[in-house]
Amino acid sequence: MPELTNPRAERVRSVRALAGRSARLRAGRFLVEGPQSVRELVREQPAAVAELYLTHEAAERHADIVGAAAAAGVPHRTGTPEVLAAMSPDAQGVVAVARPRPLSLDDVLARRPTLVALLARVRDPGNAGAVIRAADAAGAQAVVLTTESVDPHSPKVVRSTAGSLFHLPVVTGVGLAEAVDALRSAGLLVLAADGTGEHDLDDLLDVAGTGPQEAPDLAAPTAWLLGNEAWGLPQEDRARADAVVRVPIHGRAESLNLATAATVLLYASARAQRRRGGRASGDGSQVG
């Protein structure tokens, strides 16, 4: 197909418009920007790729993306650098338009997950994306974003996940009470994270998997309930959990941000479950 050369063409404008939520809802599509995210989309979910665009230079530099797309029967079009920049200023010469993967909480629970991140009213896209990436790295099997949380298909969330959005199920639009009840019914312990929690994470790690105990067992299948960046979890949300856990602060920092706390908590559970022989274990160690 001929190279796209007009940055003001209707096709280019329609791709750029997907940066807005209303356009995503109307089109049933979302924007994936940059080689890392597009690479993981093409590798992991090729059927979700609706459109794929690269500059000639990017197609040569990232031949693995073009090759994976060709192997999966996904066509691509080339465009000038001006066209790709008009589609997305963060494209780095590579842009895809993707179809969201329809997933329900029931779909996820049917797979018997042992580690889940549950985000309640998390609205910062960078934080949400970082938690999805951390959940993927820790070996969690799903992330659930309750109603009033950020759209995981917004461009900043997608970029922040660095491709992890396409590695594990991400469920949206579930009420918190419904999510907690469903997770608990599926056999998961629901632990809320809060700086005022009655249980210290270090203490729980010391006794995890050692047998019957009054404290929550981190080696058990677990869903971590994480609250809003600014105000955390209100009392009524903490009350829904089986227990409230705090991450100890050994230095002089006032607190940890949401994504950092989520990473610590998810890795603590993954370690405890791995000692017991659970399924939550990551194979990679790359940081980037």
Results as ranks from 00 to 15, higher is better:
Met1Phe: 14
Glu3Tyr: 08
Glu3His: 08
Ser14Leu: 08
Ser14Val: 14
Val15Trp: 03
Ala17Tyr: 10
Leu18Glu: 04
Arg21Leu: 15
Phe30Pro: 01
Phe30Glu: 02
Val32Pro: 00
Glu33Arg: 01
Glu33Lys: 00
Gly34Asp: 05
Leu41Asn: 04
Val42Ala: 01
Glu44Gln: 15
Val49Phe: 03
Leu54His: 00
Leu54Pro: 00
Ala63Phe: 08
Ala68Ser: 11
Ala69Gln: 00
Ala70Phe: 08
Ala71Trp: 12
Pro75Ile: 06
Arg77Val: 09
Thr78Cys: 06
Thr80Arg: 02
Pro89Thr: 14
Asp90Thr: 12
Val97Leu: 01
Val97Cys: 04
Ala98Ser: 09
Arg101Asn: 10
Leu103Gln: 11
Leu103Trp: 11
Asp106Ser: 11
Val108Gln: 02
Arg111Pro: 07
Arg111Gln: 14
Arg112Pro: 08
Leu115Arg: 01
Val116Trp: 02
Leu119Phe: 11
Ala120Ser: 12
Arg121Gln: 13
Ala134Asn: 09
Asp136Thr: 14
Ala138His: 04
Ala138Met: 05
Gly139Asn: 02
Val144Ala: 02
Val144Lys: 01
Ser149Lys: 05
Lys156Trp: 00
Val158Arg: 03
Gly163His: 05
Leu168Thr: 04
Val170Arg: 01
Val171Leu: 03
Thr172Pro: 07
Leu176Glu: 07
Ala179Glu: 08
Asp181Asn: 13
Ala182Asp: 14
Leu188Arg: 02
Leu191Glu: 03
Gly195Phe: 06
His199Gly: 00
Asp202Ser: 12
Asp203His: 13
Leu205Val: 13
Ala208Ser: 06
Gly211Cys: 05
Pro212Lys: 04
Gln213Ser: 15
Ala215Met: 07
Pro216Leu: 00
Asp217Lys: 03
Ala220Pro: 04
Leu225Pro: 02
Asn228Leu: 05
Ala230Gly: 13
Ala230Lys: 13
Gly232Met: 00
Leu233Asn: 00
Pro234Asn: 09
Pro234Gly: 06
Asp237Ser: 11
Asp237Met: 05
Val245Gln: 02
Val245His: 04
Ile249Ser: 10
Gly251Pro: 07
Arg252Asn: 12
Ala253Cys: 13
Ser255Pro: 03
Asn257Tyr: 15
Ala262His: 07
Val264Asn: 07
Leu265Asn: 03
Leu266Phe: 10
Leu266His: 04
Ser269Lys: 03
Arg274Asn: 10
Gly277Gln: 09
Gly278Met: 03
Arg279Asn: 14
Ser281Val: 15
Gly282Ile: 09
Val287Ile: 13
Gly288Ser: 15
